[in-house]
Every structure is written in C-alpha cells, then in structure tokens.
Design a protein around this nucleic acid. Structure first.
Lengths: 206, 206
DNA sequence: TTATTTTCTGACCGCATGGCCAGAATCTAA
DNA sequence: TTAGATTCTGGCCATGCGGTCAGAAAATAA
C-alpha cells in the first residue's frame, strides 16, 4: 500500500509518480468541466480511465488529491508570472503585469485555472470555513501586499489599506475568471487589461 | 397538502405564512453558521425546531426555499439601499453610498448577508452553472451598469467597460463579505469605505 | 359532540458519496 | 522459473442527502 502518509520526502517509484500526475490531470479536467461539487472520485477515476480504488491507493484521500492539485497549479502560475513581474521597473506596471500575467496563464491553461478557482471557492473544511481561499497564507495573496507596500514606499502608490486592496484584487480576479468560465466567449485579455487599469487608478498616488 | 405550485397568488393561511417565514429564518441562520453545502434540510429543520417533513410540506423543495430566501433578502437590501442612492446628487457619491449602504445593511443583518453570499456562491444548477450569481439578471448587478452609464453620460466617469467594472464591484463586494464572514472582527465599515474609495478612483474621469 | 380539513411526525426510499478491502493481475528480482 | 512486492479491480460499506408517505395530532366546522 503506497498511500501511507509520506511526511519526509519518501522516494516514489516512477510509475507511482506517473499515476499521481495522471490522476491530478484527470481531476483538473473533471472539475473544470462539471464543477467542484459534481467532481466525485468516481467521475475523476472514469476521466482518468482507471478504477476508483486507484485513487484511494495513490492518495490518502480526496483532500490530499486537492492539496496536490492546488500546490502544483499555484507553483506553475508563480513560475509563469514572477518573471513578468521582475521585468517591470515600477509598481503600477507590476500591478498590470500581475493581472495580465495571471490572465495569460489562464488563457493558456484554461482548465487548470478553472479547476483552481472552483476549488478555491467550493472546497470547505467540515466547519464550513474555506479550505484554501479567504485566508492570508496563500502565496499569491501575500505577494500582493508586498507589492502594494513597495509601491507605497516609493511614493508611487497612495496610502491605502493594503489588506482591503488585496481582498479587492484577489476577488475581482477570481470574479473575472468565474465570469469567463460561465461565458467562454468573453474576451478575457481585454477584461484583464480593464481590471489592470482599474487597479492602477485605485492605487496610484494623486 | 399545501406545497402544490402556487403560480397565481393563491391565498395562504396565516399559520402557513408564519411557518414559511420561520423556516426561511432558520435556513438563513443555518447557512450563515455552517455554510451552504452543510446546510441540509435536516439541519434547517432542526434549527427551526420542526420535523424535516414540514419543510417539504410548506415548500415544493429546497430550490423553492432558496428562491424565497434570496428574493426576500434582495428586496430588503434594495429597500434599504435605494433611498440612500437617491439622496446623492452625483455618480461618485452614489457609488460610495452603494457600497457603504450594502455594508451597513450587512452589519445590521449579518446572517442574512452571509447566507445570501453563500447561496450566491454555492447554489448550482444540475449542470454546474451558478443558480443566482455570475449571470446578468440580478437586480443589484443590472443597477450597477445603469449607474456607471449615468456617470459616463454626465462626464463624471471615464469611458471604461461597464461590464468589467460591474464584475469587479460585484466580486469585490462579495469578497469583502466573505472575508468578514471568516474574520468576524474585521472592520467592515472601514473596509467598505476603502472599497468605495477604490471604486471612485477606478471610475472617475481624469 | 362529531366530522372534516389542515398540519405535523418519524420512518422510510432511492441515490450518490468517500472510503475500504479481498483477491486478481502485473511487475520485479533472485 | 519462481517468489515476493507492487499495482489494480470491482464490489462492498456506512453515511448523508432530498424527498415521500401513512398515519397521528391539532385545528376548524357543523
């Protein structure tokens, strides 16, 4: 049995890694297609073309599957967006690059972003509090506040409440993706450009 | 049996109205407390202090219960916010009044707003599309676009995309409430003032 | 009072879920 | 070839869901 807890980076066989990746990919496609609440393990297994027990064999449970998925996509987004940020030389352009970078990633990896947004919104702890969203620990979220403070220090941004602004940017971005998920023909990049402009105007000193 | 469809305003007995109101109130408290996905009919019935069958007796199903709840709270919000809007004489102040008005309502009727936000986010149609949110038919949503256009016509607002701005305002407001739901000690009115300022700066001509 | 309608209860149904597991199949190594 | 570890299958389990229903209880009418 491979699904014992794996606290220290226990070596995993090649085939095991491959299966895990395959299942995560199937979970992404399933969630993007039918939404998180309808993405049962049975449907994910069917999408992956394996039996349901395989998921239980390779993952401790649905939660670990979701953790894996979220971590993987988060990392990929960061790897795609951070270089774009570093290429900018002022806070306003970094803000624009952030929004457009995430949108560009979403355009290229539609189902991954859709799945992430679904999990972000729908995955709850037993007590009803969100499992991933609305906290203060997500990497993207923290990086926003750092960006704002940097702009404030340089005098480029006005002296707004960084927490409120981060909540606004985060949820406005999520809202943009959700709108795009429901209206697939919506022009995402144009919307992202608009949102970038909104944020620049909301933050800049004047 | 009273739960037959009631298309033309069939007269309902006093006790029936009272029961319906009681159940809706219990649904609001339950959803606000444990979140929509955990708010089963059994839990709502328990909260109301009646047996589960009573809900089925007075409502055609869970969907009708939610419709009733959403409609009721929406109406109450509109009655509370619209007068504040009409008291303003320019678009920017109306924007601020809108955000602060909704926040003030939320502060006074915390669980109603929390329940509404939960339903907005989590209630799905069988095909996975949102049942209330992210469409273009909700009263609050439509009124936003009208407000923007009015400001643009008067020259007070710049020429932004009203759809993108409405999505931003709607989701930023929802995000604010969700953050407040998870962090009850958060200063909602201060956040609302910040959000109002953000929106005014994002929309105004210059 | 009795007869009738309205309201309520608690048990039950079919279904889907996440998870579990005995045994079969497959791969690996001696 | 053979023994042992790994991986997979398909059925099973307990749980909780929304919804239904026969019959008890309560309110109302005659």
């Amino acid at each position: 049995m491979r699904s014992e807890n794996n606290p220290a980076g226990q070596k995993r066989s090649f085939i095991e890694e491959a299966r895990r990746a395959q299942i995560v990919a199937a979970a992404i496609d399933t969630i993007a297609e039918v939404g998180y609440p309808n993405a049962s393990l049975a449907r994910i297994a069917e999408e992956a073309g394996v039996s349901k027990g395989v998921i239980s064999y390779h993952f401790a449970g649905k939660d670990e599957l979701m953790d894996q998925l979220v971590t993987g996509v988060y990392t990929e987004i960061a790897e795609s967006v951070v270089p774009r940020l570093l290429a900018q030389d002022n806070a306003a352009d970094m803000l624009r690059a952030h929004v457009r970078g995430v949108a560009a990633y979403a355009l290229e990896h539609r189902s991954r972003m859709a799945a992430l947004a679904q999990i972000f919104i729908h995955a709850l702890r037993p007590d009803g509090s969100p499992r991933y969203g609305a906290g203060e620990s997500e990497p993207l979220y923290e990086s926003l506040e750092g960006l704002y403070r940097e702009g404030q220090r340089s005098g480029e941004f006005r002296d707004f409440d960084v927490r409120a602004m981060a909540v606004t940017q985060q949820s406005a971005t999520d809202g943009m993706f959700e709108y795009w998920r429901v209206h697939p023909d919506h022009d995402l990049m144009a919307h992202a450009a608009e949102l970038g402009e909104q944020l620049v105007r909301a933050t800049r000193a004047d």
